[in-house]
Design a protein around this nucleic acid. Sequence first.
DNA 1: TTGGTCTTTGCATTCGCAGTCATTTCCGTT
DNA 2: AACGGAAATGACTGCGAATGCAAAGACCAA
Lengths: 344, 344
Amino acid sequence: MAKKKPLDQTNQEKTGVTSYDVARRAGVSQSAVSRAFRKGASVAPATRARIVEAAQALGYEPNAIAQGLITKRSNLVAIIISNLTNLYYPEVLAELTQRLSQHGVRVLLFSLAAESDVEEVLGQVWRYRVDGAIVAARLSTDQLVAFSNRGVPLVLYNRVGEGVPVASVCCDSDLGERALVDGLVQAGHTCFGIIGGPADSYVGEERANAAINRLAHYGIKAEFVRGQFDYESGGAGLKTLMELTDNKLDALICVNDLMAIGAMDTARNIIGKKVPNDLSITGFDGVSPATWEAYQLTTVRQPVRRMTQAAVAMLLERIESPDISPEQRLFAGELLSGRSARLL
Amino acid sequence: MAKKKPLDQTNQEKTGVTSYDVARRAGVSQSAVSRAFRKGASVAPATRARIVEAAQALGYEPNAIAQGLITKRSNLVAIIISNLTNLYYPEVLAELTQRLSQHGVRVLLFSLAAESDVEEVLGQVWRYRVDGAIVAARLSTDQLVAFSNRGVPLVLYNRVGEGVPVASVCCDSDLGERALVDGLVQAGHTCFGIIGGPADSYVGEERANAAINRLAHYGIKAEFVRGQFDYESGGAGLKTLMELTDNKLDALICVNDLMAIGAMDTARNIIGKKVPNDLSITGFDGVSPATWEAYQLTTVRQPVRRMTQAAVAMLLERIESPDISPEQRLFAGELLSGRSARLL
DNA sequence: TTGGTCTTTGCATTCGCAGTCATTTCCGTT
DNA sequence: AACGGAAATGACTGCGAATGCAAAGACCAA
């Protein structure tokens, strides 16, 4: 009884060119083909040449799925991101994807409507046996533990493991907001307002708290409203704050650039306030529109390249050596002194 | 000799909970576990319940890699996108990803530095045996043929198969530019300039040609320069065009919004021209900053939701029935009459 | 020529699951 | 009680590549 694929049945139709097909054409065994495609394997140069030639003639590409099954390395990394439309993440995503692909790792993308929708995608993450994950969304303790239990290396991006030690890369909210607050206070502002993010957003809370705390240090209490990180929230938030402060607001801290931009436009065009003469506005992130002529936003720019670079490096390290202990890397942002705020 | 996994060796460590582990715990065969997880399979309700319970206790998730190997369906779709940082694509990407995931399909993301870098990633696309691909980058005829030879369903996004019939979803450049040109001409503009995209960009060429042709219809010849689709290119292009036209330029057509925005800022703040009084500026895409108060760009908005919806539907159709003949779906954009241009 | 070492090569097995086929169990009927 | 048909279940194989092991060559020295 002929078991195993007998090497005698033509099969190079469309989809399925297998290593057996290549082997037959090159007159070698399937093992040889496998070895010809792996780096340090023992194959005679002449043999390898024949195999490569046959492979090319047939259009053979090793089946990564089958490789993954046997080697238990899918070369897949999950990237879980919440607000893809939020201007800041596309840059991060592009950087991460390109860096990872330089290392032969492919990206399985999960994009969330809201930051708290993670649970639904985790099942899929497990199923695909990804080699690791980079997550820019809030994970519960249970979820963090799940990663560790399943042995999936994890790097958080602009998030930290609350209560659980996890590798993470962040831009320092405290430092950033502190620089902004210090500048604003010392320039003589007195009536502060803050537009935060949705309650389930990690960075939103971080930054808002950082600003509130630093203001408290000066004995200043700011009004606080929440936004959705988008343009409209900026304008809406500003209006609310104006009411709350009896129109006295003279310093507005937004936890991201987009809301700051929205607020600037509203201040200038709707409310009729001069920015920064009547009202100083600050943002956070350093997205590209922040530097446009029309805005010249005073903000904190995250060092995206260094951060993504670090995230990828950390992840790959942990994939190689799963037992490396968690490390937090905190990057200082760069204060961008634009024309939207009077700083000292 | 005990071949096959003997069901008697504990194995629920971290990574590898397999269907055998679940089977053993539930006191059934591996086949039963497999069936319990597939829809219309024949399993007694009581058995299924036991299996599900065991699976949960062990944290079992079917291995999608193994499933893919045997069923020849990876449930993976490749998305190949060129300028992720270009403001327009993030929205598209987010939409596509979310729609696909509603259909149980995962996204393998490939992001290109330049539109012509496709070749390098195609190898990876083949290796992962994706069920289909959505491509927003220029493919050569050979590359298009490769998809068809390998039986990988393909939908082009804002591109068409030049010379080869391929399924595609586009926003109509001709209609869009025509509406803009008509409006500008009828409003009395006489000296036209166009800022195009990089020569290897498909939409860039399409739109520029559309504008040029429509202008020719009126007997008008426009000056033409190229940009890189980014903010800076807008300002730079405008300056060049001003020189070329002896400062007489009164209508500027940019092939995307970002360059139009850059041009607006430069016109107002650097060159000192009033927009739209001295100079009308138009864009294309309808990205969110186009609607910001500071710009109110006159542009053509692509119906992103309908387009992504169509792309996903077409792709899934073709995955189910690979022999459906190619179809082109051309969507009309919506003319957004902002305050950046005087139209009729 | 012979023996020993090192390199190439092929065989057989394995990864985790789906699905075919054969067998068993369960029920309703008469 | 005996039978028939449907439903449930299990044994087994194979998807495509990687790899341990053993066998076969290649090469050199004696």
